[in-house]
Each structure stands twice: as structure tokens, then as C-alpha cells.
Computed example of a mutant assay.
Amino acid sequence: MKRLRLGVNIDHVATIRNARGGLHPDPVRAAAIATEAGADGVTAHLREDRRHITDGDIDRLMAELTLPLNLEMAATMEMLDIALVHRPHAACIVPERREERTTEGGLDAAGQHNSLTPFVGRLREAGIRVSLFVAPDRRQMEAAARLGVPVVELHTGPYAHDAGERELDRLRDAAEYGAGLGLEIHAGHGLTFDNVGLVAAIPQLAELNIGHFIIGEAVFIGLGPAVRAMRAAMDAGRPVTG
């Protein structure tokens, strides 16, 4: 199997900074450390309420980052305009509710096909690689393929919270089915050193995006070591064969 890419989400470095105000800790510095530690990309979610990542952070990431930036965004005109100005490598459209603590559930690509179509079209016309954060469900894979997106990111939260065979089977089935439709398959949410191996072993997966756990572990062992340890846990789950 091919090497699985690791995208490091730096949102919660900004969460800590914003809890007190000021400039420290700096999420852009975190992105640089993750780069040095072997990350393959950086993810940042610019939320409507700017609870963690800010517009200034995106400005600096686009100017200073040497890895591809994956901008997580809601399907709103404000976020579309920001994406079109910055033109990150990728934009992952996610569901967003102001009152939620973190992203809850996947995007209903099937039910929101008509409203998502213009967003996907504008982003793709700008040369931005579009992905949808969706539940591991065949109906959502089919909807993503109809929308013409090249990538889906499977929501691993239910698996991470339950760690049961049923949720793992859902991930395996969706990854196989989506890849058969021509989609590149990514995954993320709630993954840890302990549960990432079985997800990494799913052969159709190309990339995992992991943030909260890595930032939490960084408090104890440092960000660079936390990124390297996650990389090692992923590689243990998927030995590279070529």
C-alpha cells in the first residue's frame, strides 16, 4: 500500500491563544513545527465566529507555509469569497453550526446538492481542490461524485467514540465504494495514537487529517514529537509496500 499522508490541523493552537488574547501560542509557528516533524499538509478551519483561526492567520499561512493548506470552510458566500482571494491548495466544505463545540456530523451532500453545486463550481474554477466532509455512507459518496468533487473526507468521529467493528466496517465500505466511483478518500476526526491504526489500514485511504489529539499531546511531549508519534502510529497500521 502507498504511504498515507498526514495533515495536521492547527485550529486548537489558536484556541489556546484566543482564550487569553495576544499572540501566543502562534498557530503559524505550529504549522512550521509540524512541517519539520514530517506532516504532509496543514489544515485550518476558518469559522464564522472566528473562535480559533482568524483571517490574519490565513493571510500568514498562505504567505509562509511551505506545505499545502487545506482550508476547512462552511458553504457561505463569506467563506467562498475568502477562499477565492487566497486560493489555498484545497478547500474542505464542512457543516457548521454556531453553537457546536466542534464539527458534529458530516455534510449532507445528498440533501444539499443544489445549494452546494455553485460553491463547488466556483472553487474548482479557481483551481482549488474541493473536498466534502461527509459521513461514511454510500449515498453521500454518490452525491459527492455527482457534485464533481475529487475528494471526500470521511467523518471518523463515531468510530473514534465507539471504536466498534460496526463503525469501522462503515468506514471500510464507504472508502471502497467511494474509491470505486473515482473519489480520493481522506478521513479524520477524533483519531488518536490508540485508534488510528485500524483506520490507517483501510487501503483506499490517501490522507488523514488530525488536530485536537495532536495538539493535546503536544502539551505533554511537544508538538514535533506528537506529530512524529502520530506518523509512527499511522505507519504501524499501514506498512508501506511500494
Rank of each mutant, 00 (worst) to 15 (best):
P150C: 11
E153W: 07
G148E: 08
L147S: 14
V149K: 12
D173I: 12
D169G: 14
I202W: 01
V151G: 02
E217K: 14
A232Q: 14
Y159G: 00
F220P: 05
A206K: 15
H155P: 01
V227F: 06
E217F: 05
A163W: 07
F220N: 02
G188H: 03
V149G: 09
A233D: 03
G180Y: 11
I214T: 05
L223F: 02
L208T: 01
A229I: 04
G157C: 09
L171E: 01
F220M: 09
G188N: 03
T241Y: 10
G224R: 14
R228I: 04
A236E: 07
P203D: 02
D194H: 15
A174P: 04
G182F: 06
D173L: 15
L191K: 08
V227T: 05
A229R: 15
G224Y: 08
A206F: 09
E153Q: 04
F220H: 15
V152F: 03
E217M: 14
P239G: 09
L183S: 07
V219C: 10
D235F: 12
P158Y: 12
E184M: 12
A236T: 06
I221H: 01
G148D: 08
R170F: 04
F193D: 13
L223T: 02
R172Y: 04
D169W: 06
L147D: 09
E207I: 05
Q204L: 08
H212N: 09
D169F: 09
V149E: 08
F213S: 07
H161E: 10
V240P: 09
L191G: 03
G164A: 13
P225V: 04
H155E: 07
H212T: 06
